[in-house]
Structures are given as C-alpha cells and as structure tokens.
C-alpha cells in the first residue's frame, strides 16, 4: 500500500541508509568512536537492502577514508541505489556523502579502550530527485552525531546519537528532522590473537524519531514517527580486512498517519585498512 509519495519516501530512505560514516571496529548500524591511525587509509564496499511493504531498495556504496591524525578521520561515500515502489523501478547514483569524525576523549588501560567522538556528515544533492521513485531529495542534508565506546578484549558496548537536518529542495519540500539513537553490546567468544581471525557478535537497539516533513511550510500528515529495531550482527576480521554484517528487525513502530512499516534492513560491509 503506497500512501506516501515517492519523493518523500526517497528522502527518508537516503537519510536512513547513508548516514553511517562507519569506520573500522564500529557497530553495523550505529556509530562508534573509532577513527583511523594517522595517514591510514580505509577502503570499504557496502551492500544494503531494505524493504517496507512493496517498497524495496538495494544499494552498493563505496567508501574511502583517511586518518588525518590519530584522532581525526575524514572520507567520502559514493552510493549507487536501485529502488522499486511496487510499480516502478529507478536506479542510479544516490547522494554523495562527505564525513568526518573526531575522537575528543580516549582512556586506555590494559586490554581496554574507552573513548568518545563527534561526527559531521554532509549529504550532497546530486541524485536524481525527479526519477520515479526518486533517488534523492534534491537538497543538501547535514548530519551531526556523538558516540561513546567501551571496547575490551572480552566485550564491547557503544551508545550514540545522531541528528539529521534535511535541507529544503527547489519544490519547497523539506523532510523531517530526525534523531537516531543506538545502544550496542558486543561479545567476543574467544580471546583475540594478532594476525589471527577474530569474531565479535553484536546486538544493537536502533531508534529513529522523525519529525513530519513539510511542503510549502505545511506539515504532511503521513510522514514522520518513531521506529525501533533490534539488530543482530557480526564483526569478523583477519589482519587488516574486516566484514561487518547485520539485519535490522523492527520491534516497535509508531508512524504518523498511514505509512508503510519497515519489514527489515540488511547491511554488509567489507573493509580494508591500508
């Protein structure tokens, strides 16, 4: 059932999927405080898929990041997306994202690192918002975030919050501001050894609280609301190569008006540190 028109849904979807700015040993859907080592490079490829009733999106994104200092990283994300709204399909380049993360606090002890970071990301407006379904919202969006991480040899926990300020496009449409909050626990079943494969199991609780979108200054009733997801995932690494994967399963939903609830979201990321 399609109650919300595609440009609106497209805007929301882009903000949901491409606001990760994930680096290294961070959660799959949330964010963590990890940054790259100074002068380090990260190359990553990510596949993702989401489904909400008849609406489906499948995508592939490439990410490159650079360690400016041991506490500050920056990079770009280039996503390619294919969308289907049950009747029409469109595909092409989605909005590019530039991001940066700064770790402003770090407390190290034997086998344990606690740290906190802030992040900033900008979503460009390059994607075709006139495609049907739309591939972008035709506006530049700003994403800010803060995250804390407790990472030990045995277990992990993270907490993060992001706030998304969507821009207003040429048609005077503006997607609703959005909070994303994440609480993540991680468990390593076997003690890690350097140069040996390492596995960490993750369980995330991801919340999304979205304001109503506006068109010509008027709130749109079938937009915005709250969704919560429980997301099991895995982080597997060997030396400088990592695979992260997880699936978001909706556990609570309170969407305004008539909207399609999420069925699931899947993400898998392959990362190399160079």
């Amino acid at each position: 059932m399609q109650r919300v028109n595609w440009p609106l849904w497209g805007a929301g979807a882009l903000l949901i999927i491409h606001s990760s700015a994930a680096l290294a040993h961070d959660p799959v859907f949330g964010i963590g405080p990890h940054v790259l080592f100074k002068n380090g490079m990260e190359a990553a490829a990510e596949i993702y898929r989401k489904k909400a009733d008849k609406k489906e999106e499948t995508g592939l994104a490439f990410q490159v990041a650079y360690g400016i200092t041991g506490e500050w990283s920056a990079g770009i994300d280039v996503p390619y997306s294919s969308r289907n709204n049950g009747t029409d399909t469109s595909s092409g380049l989605s909005d590019l994202q530039a991001f940066t993360k700064y770790r402003f606090w770090r407390e190290d002890s034997l086998g344990l690192q606690e740290s906190a970071a802030v992040m900033l990301a900008i979503n460009a407006d390059n994607a075709d918002e006139k495609a049907d379904p739309a591939l972008g919202n035709g506006a530049t969006d700003v994403i800010t975030g803060i995250t804390y991480g407790y990472e030990s040899i045995k277990s992990y926990r993270w907490a993060s919050a992001r706030y998304i300020f969507p821009g207003k496009n040429a048609a005077d449409f503006q997607a609703g501001n959005k909070w994303r909050v994440d609480f993540v626990a991680g468990w390593r079943p076997a003690p890690p050894e350097y140069k040996k494969p390492d596995t960490v199991w993750l369980l995330e609780l991801n919340g999304e609280i979205t304001d109503k979108a506006e068109l010509n200054g008027n709130s749109l009733m079938n937009t915005g609301g709250t969704e919560w997801f429980l997301s099991p995932g895995i982080f597997w690494t060997t030396r400088n190569f990592a695979i992260k994967s997880g699936i978001q399963v909706p556990v609570a939903s309170d969407l305004n008006g008539t909207q399609d609830k999420s069925d699931y979201r899947f993400k898998a990321t392959f990362e190399w540190h160079l």
């Binding site: 290294a24 790259l36 380090g40 002890s109 086998g111 040899i153 050894e193 040996k196 030396r239 540190h273």
Partner: peptide
C-alpha cells in the same frame, strides 16, 4: 601499550 582490544585496530601499530 594500553588500549589494545582488537587485532584489526592494532594493525595501525604494525603499519606505522
């Protein structure tokens, strides 16, 4: 060295 919690993260030391 303090803060060593995962082999993937420690790769930066080897690289440096």
């Amino acid at each position: 060295v303090d803060g060593l919690a995962c082999p993937f993260c420690a790769y930066g030391i080897e690289k440096k």
